[in-house]
């Protein structure tokens, strides 16, 4: 799974979460916007974290050198 496919999965999960909160907690436009902001922020945070770790491992300059004991 490449970078873009997983990013797409994150996007889909984000959209699903947005829809879920919209359907489950429909409390008027202002509150819905607030919920939307929360879900988007959370999705972006999670995606960023994953993306950073994934990108860092794509073309690493250091290779894992096993410990002698193991």
């Amino acid at each position: 799974m490449g970078f873009f496919v997983t990013s797409l999965i994150f996007l889909v999960i984000g959209i699903i979460a947005c829809l879920c909160t919209r359907i489950c907690f429909n409390r008027g436009p202002s509150t819905n916007l607030f919920h939307l902001t929360l879900v988007i922020t959370a999705t972006v945070c999670c995606w960023m974290m994953w993306a950073i770790v994934y990108l860092a491992q794509m073309k690493p300059l250091i290779n894992p050198i096993l410990n002698e004991a193991e």
């Binding site: 799974m1 997983t6 770790v53 994934y54 794509m58």
Partner: peptide
């Protein structure tokens, strides 16, 4: 244990590759 392992596949799909744990180059990485 000398030159290290070599990357044979695409990067670990989610999170940190478990191989780093306990390896000698874990901390620098």
């Amino acid at each position: 244990t000398i030159d290290g392992l070599i990357k044979v596949r695409d990067a670990y799909p989610f999170g940190l590759d478990p191989v780093w744990h306990g390896s000698r180059s874990e901390l620098p990485f």
